[in-house]
Design a protein around this nucleic acid. Structure first.
Lengths: 219, 219
DNA sequence: ACCTATATGTACCAAGCAGTGCAATGCACC
DNA sequence: GGTGCATTGCACTGCTTGGTACATATAGGT
């Protein structure tokens, strides 16, 4: 409990960062094989640390799990860099967002986290909450961006929340979903997915430049 | 092996269909809580059967699991009724398909199966294969339908596979995904999702009636 | 050199679990 | 009534796993 070095670190460790090593190993093992499939023995071995040290640094397996997901959350915070909504025109920003989303699908930490949300959220409800806490704000930003462009008269999203999810859904279906279900990538090039999706999105939601109505957008 | 009742059932059981009861209970428990979280004791209790009977009827826990998913697969076979691609115009068919997909999201068996694909496919690879064996043909049908309409000059899907997944992705993102991550339904009415998605899809992929200046290669 | 707190190794505990053996039971059909 | 077979209950094995006790080694600060 007491810390002879007086630092504000949680626990000091003369021999070196055992906590970091443990969390690092936990990240590799848990994200790859799931919480239940990793024993404390394996975890200790992977961390290059004695089994007993796990219990010196953490009170339980679940606490290690918690701290690991906390660390992963921090890594995902930067998924969507700030400021992208101010650069270039709509199409450019959509390209950026789309590439970011597809890049996320190649992020093992993201996929592992997502798998945990689906697999272990009933046992540990805080998993889903933690995931939402990281990803929801980024979705929110995208929604606000669409709403902003609508207010500016550039887009015409009657329901920006729906529009944002349509956009993400089109990207997720062919790129994320196969990854989650274990098959190899589908025979559709990333470039095609992105371009066709953006074209489709803008054709529907972009407000006609002149007042011309190729179709009336009322129901 | 021999069955005094002469039926072609696998195993006869004088006291009543214990196999069916077991598979039924397994379906409820496994789909709801996952394979690892259900013990044979619980399963026996839920099936109203002695623990020992489980091992009389099945060789292992995994075999019960297998048979249960087989039964669920059979129930999902009929998700997309045959013949829908011949009735009405495109918009009508798309409506039908969309409602079917959203209905599937309320199907506990479908959600549970999907969860298993994500959660337990590494331990039991045949789960993902079984799921694909049921769902892929239905997606295939939709893809062929889009290709057919393109050949007929009604749609203009250069890549029907991509188009189909875009359509399904837009529906899944807002309806299926929240369900999988445990939150309650999103604040977008089903009707809005369906209508906006179909409108967007058709606006992009429907070949313009009058001016067919784009390209023309209907087979 | 001394003190303190961590790291380690080994042995251990308790619990949960899948799966088996065995003898007894009771329904169904002859 | 008798026979056969699924069923049942119970005890038991064997294994894995999370977590602990304890004695010892070792490094850092003073």
């Amino acid at each position: 409990m007491k810390n002879r070095r007086g630092s504000n670190e949680a626990i000091s460790k003369p021999r070196g960062g055992s906590r970091e090593a443990i969390v690092g190993a936990a990240q590799r093992l848990f994200l790859e094989r799931g919480f239940g499939a990793v024993s404390m023995d394996e975890l200790a071995a992977a961390a290059g640390v004695a089994r007993r040290t796990l219990y010196n640094q953490f009170t339980s397996k679940e606490e290690i799990f918690r701290e690991m997901l906390l660390s992963v959350s921090a890594q995902l915070e930067t998924a969507l860099p700030p400021g992208i909504e101010t650069q270039g025109d709509v199409e450019e920003v959509l390209h950026l967002v789309a590439r970011m989303i597809l890049a996320l699908h190649r992020h093992p930490e993201y996929l592992g986290f997502l798998r945990m949300v689906v697999a272990d959220s009933r046992q540990f409800p805080w998993i889903a909450e933690g995931f939402a806490a990281v990803m929801d704000p980024q979705t929110e930003r995208f929604v606000r961006y669409l709403a902003h462009l609508t207010a500016m008269g550039i887009l015409d999203c009657r329901n920006p929340l729906l529009a944002a999810h349509q956009f993400m859904g089109m990207l997720n279906e062919l790129s994320l979903w196969p990854w989650m279900t274990g098959r190899e990538s589908v025979p559709v090039p990333e470039k095609d997915i992105i371009e066709e999706t953006i074209r489709m999105f803008l054709q529907h939601y972009r407000r006609p430049r002149s007042k011309r109505a190729r179709h009336d957008s009322a129901a």
